[in-house]
Each structure stands twice: as C-alpha cells, then as structure tokens.
Design a protein around this nucleic acid. Structure first.
Lengths: 353, 353
DNA sequence: ATATTTTGCGCAATCGATTGCGCTTAGGGA
DNA sequence: TCCCTAAGCGCAATCGATTGCGCAAAATAT
C-alpha cells in the first residue's frame, strides 16, 4: 500500500522552479501568467495527477461549489425526478449536490437547514415540507446572501425566487376537462390548504365550476393531510357514501386518485361512465392502473434543471457572500412558471376522443 | 443587511480570555480541558451562534464527514428508497450525503467517481451502472483507504464490502412459487448477464427448474438491456408468440413484469390461470396493476441504512486515511445479505390460498 | 516543607490554496 | 541611449480549526 501523499501546488511549484502562487494562478487561468508557464504547469499537473484540495480552496474563498437540496421525501416519484434533474444540471456546471429530507416535518426541515448552512452550500433548492407555514428559518440564508430557490411547494411570499407551475390553471384545466366530459357534480380531494399549491389547485377547481355555472358544494371538497393511499380511500368512501355522490373527482395528486379508482371499482361504479377521475402529477402509476388515470403532467426533471439554472444566474449576479454587506443579496425575485398540460386517459374519457 | 462575519473560535477565545486551542479542545470535549472552562466555552459558543467552519476542520483533519453515493438513476423506485435510507441513517450520525448518478453508463460512473474522490468523501456507497464490468476505477478509493460499500448491484469480487440480497435464493423462491402454482413451462426475463444480480437470478431460476425436474428451455430465457417497459413488451410478445407459449413468467424486475401483464391481457390470456407472473423488487406499481403483481420484496430503505452502518464500522476500524500506509486499508470484507421474501398477489395466485 | 504528579492551557506550526502588493525584466517610444 | 509601461512572477499573509510539545499551577505524596 502506497503512502500516496496527495500532490499539492507546492509539489508542482517546486518541481517547476516557480512559486505556488504561479501554479495556482496558472491553474485558474489567471491573466497575469505567461502562456508557456501555464502550459507547463498544466502539463505537470496532469502527469502527476494533481487534484486540487477543495477544502483549502473553500476555506480561502469561502464557497463550496455545492448546491444543497432540501425536500420532503426522496422516494417519491415527483421528487426523485426533480432531484435527478437537479443533479444532472448541477454536475454539468461543476457543482456537487448534497441532499436532505424533511420527512414533511418542519422541525426536521429547520434542522437540515442549519446543517446545510453549516456546510456552507453555495445555494439552496427547496421544496417545502407539508407542515411548513413559518418561513423564518430560511432567513438564515437570505441574510448571508446565499441564493435560495423554491421549487414546486413554494412559500406564499413575493420577493423570493421560485420555479413552479401554475397550479390554479392546471386545476382549472383539469376541472374543465371533467366538465367537458359531462360531469356536473365534481368532488375535489385537496392537500393541506396552508400549502399554496393545494390552495391554488382548490381555487382553480372552484373557478372552473363557477365559470361553468356549477354550484360549489363544500360537502364534496375534502382536504387531506398527506394525500396518501389510505387518506385517499377514506375521502373516496366519504363522497361515495353521500346521498348524491359525485360524477367526477379531481384529486390534487395521483395517489389519492388511485385510491378513488379502487374504491369505485369495488363498489361497481363505472369509470368514467358514472364517475370520471383525474389526478395530478402524472406519476408512472397513471399508465399502469386500470383504467389508466388522467392527470396533469408536471415537468419534474425540467423543474430541477430550471431551478439549478436559476441558482446559477443568482450566483453570477450576487457573487461572493462576503460582499453581501451592501447590496441586497438575493433581493430580486423570480417567478418561473413551467407549462403543464392535461393528459387524458381512460379514467376521464367519456367522449372517446 | 448585516455584514455578519461568521464567529470563529478566535472570537470566542478572545472574549473568554483563553487561547483558540482551548476553545477548540473544549468544543471537542478533549480530556485535558477543565470542566468549568468547557462549560463556559460552550455557553458562549451557543449564545454567539458559533458554527464550526467545516472547511478549516476538513483541511486540517483531511476528512469531510461526507458520504458519497453513486447510483444509476435517482428516479427509480428502488434507488430512491435506497437513498432515502442512506440519507436518514447518515444524517443521524452527523454525515452529509452527496449524490451522483451514472445514468447506467460506465463512463459517467468513472467521471463521478473522480469527482467524488476530489471532494474527499469519507466513504462511498455504490450501486453499479448496468454497463460496468471493469472495477478498476474503484481502486482509486481502495488505494487511499477510503471505505467503499457496494449495494444491490455489486461486483463479482470477493474481497470487498457489500450489502445485498441473496438473488439466487430469491429467484429460486420465486420460481418454485410458480411451480407450486402448477406452472410447468416458465419463462424468464433477465437483465444483462455481466451484472451479477441478473446472472444470479437466472441461476436461481434454473436451479429451481432442475430441482423440480422441469426442462430448461433456452428459447424462453430472455435477456434485456435495461428491462424497461418497452423491452418488457418486446420480450413478452416474443414468448407469447411461441408455438408453445409459457404458462408462467419470472421477471427480474417489476417493470418488465408489468409489460408482460399488459401483453397478456391484450391477447386475452387469463392471469394467473393461463399465465402466472411474478416480478422482482415489489415496486409500488405491484399493488396498483391489475391483477396485482406478485413479486420479491426487497428491503430498499433498510439496505441503505445497513450500508451506512457498514461504512461507519469501516471508518471506525480503519481511521484516517493518512494512516493508511501500513495497514491494509479496507482490506477486510463484508457480505451482508438481507432477507427477501415472495409477496404473493393475484398475478400468480392460482390456488387462492 | 520539599519533591513529584496531575491537571489545565498556551504556543506555534500545519493543512493547501488564494491574493494584494510589489519587484524584475523585456520591449517600445522618444 | 534613457525612460516608461506592461507583462510575468514571487512574497507573505490569510482562511479557521487542530494538535504535538511544553510549561505553570494545583494537588498529592513523602
């Protein structure tokens, strides 16, 4: 076993008979170093297998070239695709990605926030925990000029950077789709209303009803904590037990929609004939379940990439956080809205178009 | 906006009238510091919101408290659960997790390996890319005494640390289950054979046939590159087009099994009556598809956690990689095999047990 | 009361890369 | 030929935490 001490710029400097500063600048393509010197340094660095010590560099420059990612659960279809996109885009730009999950709990979220801050991430990409209503923990980053970009589950604040979709419109479209299929009594299974995305989906749903002169009936507008399979089942049974059950359901996620389909099938209710159903997210299960589930397609991977690009541009304009004293650090705002569209499948297709 | 210079141990030292060394040792609970001093230091650190600079610490100690994770694709059910487990266990032990994906390409895998090495991860957890047959790039870590633990898709080497399942047995069980259900002509959809897990599953399948005196027919043992939905469909059509189609299929993953189910249904083949099917992984879709898909349950989250625990114990026994000169660094080996079990669902349940 | 440990801390070097400032030398202009 | 500019590099400090060695004061032994 070799004792393989890593080679440093000092080793290179000594071997070339120049100073470490020169080596450093040569490697960083600094303007004040001669062509031939640069070439020589790089060649030797290459041949000796020099690898910069990122700790030393980070210590000096106080930046890590790392993007922190904070999400609820990694093992959810939408989130894992989001992260996949983030990782790819970030790595292409020479950044590392360090992840952590909040398990949808605000407390864990705050802890992880602190940990990510401690590890001096260059920037942060966040999809909020379901519980979160207090955004103050994020000020830690704002105060230090560290870019924060929210994705999907974004706070209801104006002066922040966010990458998301138009939930109102998507929900509106989904609902109008059901209406177009002839539904006149449409239920809605939503998520916690303090989370903007769910409130907006609900609002879009209601707007669509109103526009089409359909009465808004609160007895068929239900709210779930987590929209899990179990909760979906509970909600589905609730509305199907009603004296006048709905003839359509718009679910704020696919999981609950799947439960609804199961429930309906168990009861012998015809889908979409007697009950049309549409979900949200376009998870893989949509194509698997029977009947295939209509849904709102969500550009997960692209959202991840877009978030990274957003982070990069923020990093460019508001450089080192050491300079963050005078200029409002991430004072600007962005509101990147990605496109969604209704994916019509058998669960809601009555017209057979 | 505050200029908020981070507080350092020097600040604390000055304010307390002690030396930085004392502060450092007090914070690290070093034995040679008095009780009262420790208490005082900690209290001040707390009140001033001191946060250690991990770069400085890492530079000095040459270790990052970070675990690198290298997988094929993050957005796959099994992998995302694996990572979820890794993240949780690692963070509980004060480690960060930095992830990267190989997209199942050896080249990208090697690149990411280098990047992870450059970022001086304390240890590495890997699930191989489908393509990978050359394990030499991993020597980089071995040579420097950095623990490497392989998970699930592990190399066919002896002297390494791995956490996986008994693929042979799982496949054997799956196949025997089909046999027990009365199947006598069982097809197998496998993955690339140079990947041990697929070769083992294939071997387990064959062993089960032989043990039950069933002829091994190579025309119904197929191999796929990636076992995707599309490939699954292709393979399914191939065997169902045969003069004597199979009465059972054991798929090396659930995705391909889902395709098989679809194909069979399209052709009006009764499942499980005329064709019993079992998959592998127990992905969420198993419960969703109709009929529900039997599968091999894979403890994904637990595998992730186990891998982290394994890494930790390696870190304990073979401490700093600076000492790695004399003692064979990660010279030992581990072969942690987690339990799997057959989950019987309708797709293979002919006896109605 | 003197000698000997033990306890508690400080000094200063170190980890490797970065960078402001200044010096040297080559080249151009008058 | 002399002065000046700019190109090309080096010096040394710096980032913040860690640690081997050494010293002084307090505690215990003789």
């Amino acid at each position: 076993m070799e004792k393989k001490k890593d080679v440093t710029i000092y080793d290179l400097a000594q071997e070339l008979g120049v100073s470490p500063s020169t080596v450093s600048r040569a490697l960083n393509d600094h303007a004040s170093i001669g062509k031939k010197t640069k070439k020589a340094v790089r060649k030797l660095a290459e041949s000796k297998g020099y690898r910069p010590n990122t700790f030393a560099s980070s210590l000096r420059t106080n930046q890590s070239n790392t993007i922190g990612v904070l999400v609820s659960w990694i093992n959810r279809p939408f989130i894992s695709s989001l992260i996949s996109g983030i990782e790819k885009e970030a790595r292409d730009k020479g950044y590392h990605v360090i992840i952590s999950q909040s398990h949808d709990q605000s407390e864990l979220e705050t802890e992880n926030l602190q940990a990510l801050y401690d590890s001096r991430v260059s920037a942060l990409i966040v999809s909020l925990a379901m519980e979160t209503v207090d955004y103050r923990p994020f000020d830690l980053f704002r105060k230090h000029g560290i870019p924060v970009v929210f994705v999907d589950r974004v706070p209801v604040l104006q002066k922040i950077h966010k990458v998301h979709i138009n939930n109102f419109k998507a929900a509106f479209d989904a609902t109008e789709h059901l209406i177009a299929q002839g539904c006149r009594r449409i239920a809605h299974f939503g998520g916690a209303r303090h989370q903007a995305i769910y409130e907006e989906r609900r609002a879009g749903y209601i707007a669509a009803l109103k526009k089409n002169n359909i009465e808004v009936d609160n007895t068929i507008i239900l709210e779930a904590e987590s929209l899990s399979l179990e909760e979906g089942t509970r909600l589905a049974e609730k509305v199907l037990d009603l004296p006048i059950p709905p003839d359509g359901i718009f679910c704020a996620n696919d999981t609950a929609a799947v439960s609804a389909i199961h429930c309906a099938k168990v009861r012998g209710i015809k889908i979409p004939g007697e009950l049309a159903i549409i979900g949200f997210n376009d998870d893989p299960i949509c194509k698997i379940i029977e009947p295939p589930l209509s849904s709102i397609h969500h550009p997960a991977v692209e959202m991840g990439k877009a978030a990274v690009r957003e982070v990069m541009s923020m990093l460019d304009t508001a450089p080192a956080n050491a300079d963050a004293l005078n200029k409002e650090p991430s004072g600007g705002k962005t509101n990147l809205v990605l496109e969604t569209h209704v994916v019509v499948r058998a669960s809601s297709n009555r017209l057979g178009a």
